[in-house]
Deep mutational scan, measured.
Amino acid sequence: MTFKLIINGKTLKGETTTEAVDAATAEKVFKQYANDNGLDGEWTYDDATKTFTITE
């Protein structure tokens, strides 16, 4: 399955995708991506669209 991450950061904005077997796996990938890029914010997830959002 394809999951999307929408980034609404103070300095970084955009989106990225990952292929994962489930939402929990995708969340780990996206949280590592956010950590690697210095993002810290509030996370939301929409199961209907398989989309995570981080807002700083």
Rank of each mutant, 00 (worst) to 15 (best):
17 T>G: 04
35 N>W: 07
42 E>G: 09
28 K>S: 13
1 M>Q: 11
37 N>D: 03
43 W>D: 00
52 F>S: 00
18 T>N: 04
22 D>V: 03
30 F>V: 01
37 N>K: 11
38 G>C: 06
8 N>W: 07
43 W>H: 01
3 F>P: 00
12 L>M: 10
16 T>W: 15
5 L>A: 02
3 F>Q: 01
26 A>V: 02
14 G>W: 13
48 A>G: 10
48 A>W: 11
56 E>N: 03
40 D>R: 06
30 F>L: 06
13 K>W: 09
33 Y>L: 13
50 K>P: 01
17 T>Q: 12
10 K>I: 13
6 I>K: 14
4 K>E: 03
53 T>V: 08
18 T>P: 01
30 F>D: 00
49 T>W: 07
38 G>A: 15
21 V>R: 10
44 T>I: 11
44 T>F: 14
2 T>V: 12
35 N>M: 14
22 D>G: 04
35 N>C: 05
25 T>A: 12
23 A>N: 06
9 G>D: 05
12 L>Y: 12
3 F>A: 00
47 D>S: 15
1 M>P: 13
29 V>P: 01
9 G>R: 09
16 T>N: 07
8 N>H: 13
41 G>L: 03
27 E>N: 07
22 D>M: 03
1 M>F: 07
31 K>L: 07
50 K>D: 03
46 D>A: 06
44 T>Y: 14
33 Y>K: 03
55 T>V: 06
11 T>K: 14
42 E>L: 10
4 K>R: 11
54 I>Q: 01
11 T>F: 15
21 V>P: 13
37 N>Q: 13
41 G>M: 03
30 F>P: 00
33 Y>S: 02
33 Y>G: 01
40 D>I: 12
6 I>L: 08
5 L>S: 00
14 G>I: 12
34 A>L: 06
13 K>M: 13
31 K>E: 09
29 V>F: 10
24 A>D: 06
33 Y>W: 14
15 E>G: 03
20 A>T: 09
17 T>I: 09
43 W>V: 03
19 E>P: 08
43 W>N: 00
46 D>L: 05
20 A>Y: 02
50 K>N: 10
49 T>P: 02
50 K>W: 07
34 A>K: 02
12 L>R: 03
20 A>E: 06
15 E>P: 02
25 T>M: 13
7 I>T: 06
18 T>M: 11
